[in-house]
Design a protein around this nucleic acid. Sequence first.
DNA 1: TATTGTTATACTCTATAACTATA
DNA 2: TATAGTTATAGAGTATAACAATA
Lengths: 173, 173
Amino acid sequence: MVENAAQRGTGGTPPARRQARPDLAEMVVPLLRTLMAAEQPVLDAHGLTMWAYAVLLHLDETPIRTQAALAEAIRADKTRIIAVLDDLENRELIRRRPDPKDRRARLLSLTAEGRRLRDTVQSAIQLGEEELLAQLPAADRDGFLRGLQVLSALAEPGASGAGRETGNARPRP
Amino acid sequence: MVENAAQRGTGGTPPARRQARPDLAEMVVPLLRTLMAAEQPVLDAHGLTMWAYAVLLHLDETPIRTQAALAEAIRADKTRIIAVLDDLENRELIRRRPDPKDRRARLLSLTAEGRRLRDTVQSAIQLGEEELLAQLPAADRDGFLRGLQVLSALAEPGASGAGRETGNARPRP
DNA sequence: TATTGTTATACTCTATAACTATA
DNA sequence: TATAGTTATAGAGTATAACAATA
């Protein structure tokens, strides 16, 4: 069904040029490695793990009413973020208090200091990222960012057109 | 320099629109999740793990003289790929024989069947990827692919910080 | 002695199951 | 009984260390 991009036997020149491009994952994985390597020193400098940073980022975006909802939003196991929340709470970067209307649930919110730390860290991270992006011509850079934004949204918990209960990320034609 | 996009305290106006864009890693991670979820069924159908597929891909690109070199090339631990190589060898998808000139080393190469399987799997994977990419406007799609190719090359084992070299140049040890 | 590959061990991360408290 | 959170346990994946063969 697929016509193989590596065409063979066309006359006397078989360069056997496998595929027109590498697999996307084959390119995305090294890129992610680069990004994480650049982030790590920044996070370390502020005593944040990647999960803690993800919590700060997401709490800022959306006030969250239960830990389970937060865990799902950042695609972590609910048991996994507990130690993270403990730490952030002890450092007074987040607040975690029982919901008065249902004391089983915990209302999660950023403190002012948490917000300030998030801003600082994110600015530093994005500053480093801009150095990477500066290696691209302006047109590619813009296309890259727009494309990345669109494609990444397909995997979000409430992705377009797909029910959230299936969990497979197969787009529909 | 990048000035912080989220500026506050200027006459009490701004809606605190955090950053102009999400962190790159925040977008790359979900994208990778989507890509892996799409790859998995294809790999499963052919009895390949992701590491096995990485081996097939890389052996095709570059004949390799030692397992350690292969491991480094795909950024795996050398002990981690041994079981993978055992399986691929048993299935006669790769050949692994002692180098006559130094019988400690193992010469690794693809068999014809290994090459055929790699082509089949890669075509199927890239077919799925094209469905994803089809969601982008043509200009963004091209910029995304070019940008991804350049940025991913920065993380390759022999990456020289700056170069704009074409995708697949691999420096020799 | 140094190097390649292999095996054995330990560690890290993550998920599953059991427990507490609220409802 | 059911749900939110927490704690305890077990599993997968990975890296580190010890070992055997060859140079």
